[in-house]
Amino acid sequence: MFHYKLYYFDVRGSAEPIRMLFALAGEKFEDYRVNDEEWTTMKAKMPNGRMPVLEINGLQIAQSASILRYLAEKFGYTGKTLIEKAQVDACYEEFRDFRYEIHRFITVLRGKRPGDVKEAYLKWYVPAKKRLFNFLEIMLRKNGTGFLVGDSVTYADLVIAEYMNVLFRERPNELDAFPEV
């Protein structure tokens, strides 16, 4: 029997799709929410000094993508065929590229980098958003099931749905031009 313990801060963030996988699979896990004070002492004990970290019977796995892929494979949320699995990975990697591309905008938005927020939005966020959302539109329209790949939910659906949930709360009209998404 496996004992799963997920370490992350008391926010949704990159741990939320992991939590969603556990819920979908009906698997019990310890959802350990780390506060800032605890983190200063725990950081050195984490494999890469960051979170999320999934502990399985004492073995630690770092990096949200590694955790997601491991659990998705174990619980059956990677796609049903090798082709579907490759397509799911492609969807997830497109999303990771998008997150990388908008990082400069996010740093301006949060005041960690000098610059005009509107200018940064137009320069970095809008082109990345159009590329990702157009890709998702094509995948969803072509698949026709409401899922990115195949006829059931995958870890890529969860990661992207979590981001869209946050985006929709912050900017509800952002998805107007992308009805499939």
Rank of each mutant, 00 (worst) to 15 (best):
T145K: 10
K80Y: 01
E27T: 00
E174C: 13
R96Q: 13
V108F: 06
A90P: 00
A177I: 05
K85W: 01
D36G: 02
E37I: 03
D151T: 03
N57F: 07
D10I: 00
V53I: 11
F168E: 14
F98M: 05
R110H: 12
D89H: 08
R99A: 09
D151S: 12
L136F: 08
L71N: 05
E30A: 08
Y8G: 04
M20W: 12
D116K: 07
L148C: 04
I160K: 03
L21Q: 06
T107M: 15
M46F: 12
A62V: 09
A62W: 10
R171Y: 07
R169T: 12
Q87D: 05
L167M: 11
E170N: 11
G49R: 10
Y8F: 09
I56T: 11
A25W: 04
I67F: 06
L122K: 14
I18V: 13
K45R: 12
N134T: 14
E94W: 02
R69D: 07
S152P: 03
R19K: 03
E119N: 12
A15P: 00
W124V: 06
D97F: 00
P172E: 12
Y163K: 05
V149G: 00
P17N: 01
R33E: 05
T81Y: 01
G49C: 12
K130Y: 09
S64Y: 06
D31M: 05
A86N: 06
E94F: 04
A177W: 04
F98L: 03
A86D: 03
I160D: 03
L175M: 15
F29W: 06
A15S: 08
A23L: 11
Y125C: 08
M42A: 07
N57E: 13
E101H: 12
V53F: 02
Y100Q: 08
Y92I: 01
P52W: 07
D10R: 01
T145E: 10
L59V: 15
D36Q: 02
T41Y: 01
E180T: 14
I102F: 04
A90C: 07
R113S: 14
M164L: 15
E16S: 07
A65T: 14
K85H: 01
G58E: 11
K142H: 10
F178T: 09
P172D: 12
R171N: 12
Y92H: 13
F178L: 09
T107I: 09
P127Q: 08
F29E: 08
D10F: 00
I61G: 09
A62K: 10
A23I: 09
F168Q: 14
H3D: 08
T145R: 10
F9M: 02
G58L: 11
E27N: 00
L68N: 11
L167S: 09
K129N: 09
R50P: 04
Q87P: 00
F2C: 00
R12F: 02
Y32T: 02
Q63K: 11
